[in-house]
Design a protein around this nucleic acid. Structure first.
Lengths: 238, 238
DNA sequence: GCCTGGATATCGTGC
DNA sequence: GCACGATGTCCAGGC
């Protein structure tokens, strides 16, 4: 990895184009062929190149010119370096595994493992069920035999979530004499969403990532092998 | 700006949580309170914190501990540094303005300034028109008085674009005896989209960013003041 | 290869 | 502060 603090000009050409005049920046070149150019502020790089680039360097008019070319889609980042404040190369020894502990998938797992999180008596029928344009997160049957369709969001559910669920419902068939109960599961509802929900006859069940995590950990401790077996049998069934 | 190459462990807790074991990484702390932790590969940082964080440092068990806390939403990044390979602080002098030359907005500007890009005789009626959940990019009237509704995409238009346009149409009113012509304007259509478009009676008009740019530049050269006047009068009208 | 959806998305803008 | 759309989004997973 090459780390440089330099004064430079930068031009990008590809999906669109950009120009940045002379100034001091932090430039990072990584071994997988990606580039990051950071200014003194902002989380995001001002210019960059995703991995897979080919680097070229040359000297022209007493300036160091660095090009990073990405073959597909074809885009080019050109840095014209007038002064080098710092330059270092580092071999980073880093084999650690990155563990992300919770996401929407964990909420789903928690519901699959413990349907009572939604309501007593609920039984899961299917999950990740393919319908026309996407997947239904969880399909279930309640204690009265009604069909329950669940859409999970880890963030406050907005209008888009409700529409997505409504879209899926078009492709769900309900046995005669049973009701269809669409449920949004999320930590909360976005501001104006409740009226819409009520109007459409949808339900909302609050569930946080944290609660899901706790549930998974509890179940994992109490009966790890059984849970694992459940997942495997379900997947095999698919 | 603080740039460090260190061996460290990292924990994140907030919108979700993560853990990363011991390894060598590049750590960047910026003056606006953002954090970037980069591994030897990948464009994206493995851990980060957006701007607005408060930093805390302390020594514990011969390790340097750096915390970056973001107040809202509350999230915490903790780095336990066991060894420092490099540490530098830099005052980056960088006042240059960043210029991005083209985006979807430029396609819209080009159409507003030169409706003939879509078809001869087209007249723009409105743009960024507020409808229920979003904004209609451009509203216009064709040479026969039919209402034209345009959705602009700078990337190949997929199913989502068509649905978005369809959604907006629900809120568009057409004068009696006139037709409604929904048009997708994009460089191309994604693979399976044309059948859907045809079925819904939508039209597709190819337009690239580059062509839009050329148009804007040509008009800018030929009649800069008039174009400026047009935009201002349109905005005032709003 | 294209397309779809998720992300600790981030960021700006309007309300 | 909240919601929503754009991003040179990036990226993994399917097909």
């Amino acid at each position: 990895m090459v780390i440089m603090v330099v004064s430079c000009r930068i031009a990008y050409s590809g999906r669109t184009s950009s120009d940045l005049g002379e100034g001091e920046r932090l430039v990072i070149l990584k071994e997988d062929g990606c580039v990051l150019v950071h200014r003194r502020s902002n989380y995001q790089p001002v210019n960059w190149q995703p991995s897979g680039c080919v680097f070229q360097t040359r000297i022209e008019n007493q300036s160091l010119i660095i090009k990073a070319v990405r073959p597909s889609p074809l885009e080019t980042l050109t840095m014209i370096v007038s002064r080098v404040e710092f330059l270092g190369t580092f071999q980073l020894n880093d084999e650690a595994e990155f563990l992300l502990h919770a996401s929407e998938e964990d909420m789903q797992k928690a519901i699959l493992a413990e349907p009572g999180l939604i309501e007593p008596g609920l039984q899961v029928v299917d999950f990740e069920k393919k319908v026309a344009p996407g997947f239904v997160d969880v399909c279930a049957v309640d204690s009265r035999g009604n069909t329950v369709v669940i859409e999970i969001k880890k963030d406050p559910a907005g209008v888009a979530s409700v529409k997505q669920l409504a879209e899926y419902l078009k492709y769900i068939q309900v046995p005669a004499g049973r009701k269809l109960r669409p449920i949004i599961v999320a930590p909360s509802l976005a501001k104006g969403v409740l009226p819409m929900l009520t109007k459409m006859g949808f339900e909302f069940k609050p569930l946080t990532l944290q609660k899901s995590l706790e549930t998974l950990q509890r179940l994992s401790r109490s009966d790890q092998s059984a849970l694992k077996g459940w997942f495997e049998s379900t997947k095999t069934k698919e």
